[in-house]
Design a protein around this nucleic acid. Structure first.
Lengths: 259, 259
DNA sequence: CGCGGTCTTGACAGACATCAATTTCAGTGG
DNA sequence: CCACTGAAATTGATGTCTGTCAAGACCGCG
């Protein structure tokens, strides 16, 4: 697995979503990072632990998950290269879920201490990193909507739209094709259904010619139709940091007195 | 509705979850706040807007919600006094959901500008406010689990356990009694079911003598039993900022080379 | 008093879970 | 080289949770 300098990867990612001054980039360059290869299913951090480092995903996939009392696993999010899924452990402890590798992956560990020092010095970097954790939050909200309002077929379609869109954003999907080593059990645990039902829904997506899915290769044949069945809109991913100029008046002026 | 000095309210809240130096408290005291009374269902910020102020809830309830393409409303979170539900708008724009009043409420608006200046100056306050947005995130994760893994009865029980626990944390619930002006339609829209089914599940909770629910008054008669049927554990609320001393070794030392 | 919102109840249908078994296929060892 | 193995995918039959449709009861409000 060819892996570039992880700092470069992180800088590219941050540049894609926000403007980064040269000084900020230099700060990032100076961060200590320890690259590591992980096997499939390797647990990076577990619920209850208090990590002292963060994990930048360089290659492959990670996923967050939590096991409820009955041993049932719920997958909470997927992560693509450039993500720092446990960035939030800088400020919130202990971990309230697990972080594991989906397939083999390459990560770079960054100790908390230098990261904290860097952020304390730079409001602009704080803004960018804080924002990353907020985008994360937005994804959870969308998952709540997906689970609350949509049927099984729609949920799986939505999941695939999200992964494809995020993979495209980091240049890892071409013509709707990307790698995704999730089993149907994983899909079921992420979308809140049984593997049997997940299987039937996936077959339906295939039958409708929306995608081809062999092993860990997915090809979305008709993205527009997939988005349609997923009722997917990518705004919640906040992929571009375009502060809209449309500042509509706040509700404040309309608020009345209580009856 | 008796409302104290909103700054005091915020400081008390922050002191409850983190240690706050006197200097930090003084910074908060200096923030400009504009108190306002809101009517039931009043929309504070809407999806797509780019607010230039945050909203501290002083009294009553707020809720976040999003309407999907079919006009279906999904409620994403509830907010109790002391919360700043749109704090994240400091760093993430535009809004990807709506924020409204559940019943009549009192809020205090804080302009972004002085808040940003304050946070840029104080790493400790940045830590606390950032952390608040991360706790938020943790709640969404729990909602995903609730929706993904649990049946209707459990989901409603979970919702009630969460609200009760959060109300207790801010001193607004006594002996399991608290005010909660959500209709059964609201409950249904929050838990991903129809109002009819929500009604039946609530009746079942009543029949099991777990609670009494009249209008906007709820009395949880048997919290232990309710937690049991909800499979509720409050750790995800991160109510106490107790950095555990249990720092277990990270997975880093175990990671092997790829096959 | 009539109106609309909220809560409640019943009958029926559909989505999804459960249980059970079979197929496929990559990895492994004789 | 090929049988063996176990994980993953697939198929079928059946039951249950939850949605849909329809209607009635309750209640605050103009």
């Amino acid at each position: 697995m060819a892996v570039g300098f992880p700092h470069t990867k992180l800088i590219a990612r941050l540049r894609a979503i926000a403007s980064l001054t040269d000084a900020d980039a230099a700060q990032i360059e100076a961060l200590p990072m320890k690259v590591q290869n992980l096997r499939d299913k390797h647990a990076i951090v577990r619920e209850g632990e208090v990590p002292d480092q963060c994990c930048l995903l360089v290659d492959g996939f990670l996923y967050r998950h939590k096991n409820d009392s009955g041993g049932q696993r719920q997958i909470l999010s997927w992560h693509v290269p450039g993500d720092i899924p446990d960035l939030y452990s800088l400020h919130l402890n202990p971990m309230d879920h697990n972080l594991s590798a989906l397939g083999s992956a390459v990560v770079a560990f960054i100790p908390h201490a230098p990261l904290k020092i860097m952020l304390d010095r730079s409001p602009s970097l704080t803004h960018i990193f804080w924002r990353e954790t907020l985008v994360d939050s937005s994804l959870f909200r969308e998952w709540v909507i997906s689970m609350g309002k949509h049927a099984g077929l729609t949920r799986i379609a939505h999941l695939l739209c999200e992964v494809l869109t995020r993979m495209r954003a980091v240049g890892l999907a071409h013509d709707g094709r990307f790698s995704f080593p999730a089993s149907q059990v994983d899909i079921a645990d992420a979308t809140g259904m049984t593997p049997i039902h997940a299987n039937r829904m996936i077959q339906q997506l295939r039958a409708r010619k929306l995608l081809v899915w062999n092993g860990d290769r997915i090809e979305v044949a008709d993205f527009d139709a997939l988005k349609e069945t997923a009722s997917f809109e990518d705004s919640y991913l906040h992929l571009r940091d375009n502060p809209q100029l449309v500042v509509r008046p706040l509700a404040s002026v309309q608020g009345g007195q209580l009856p």
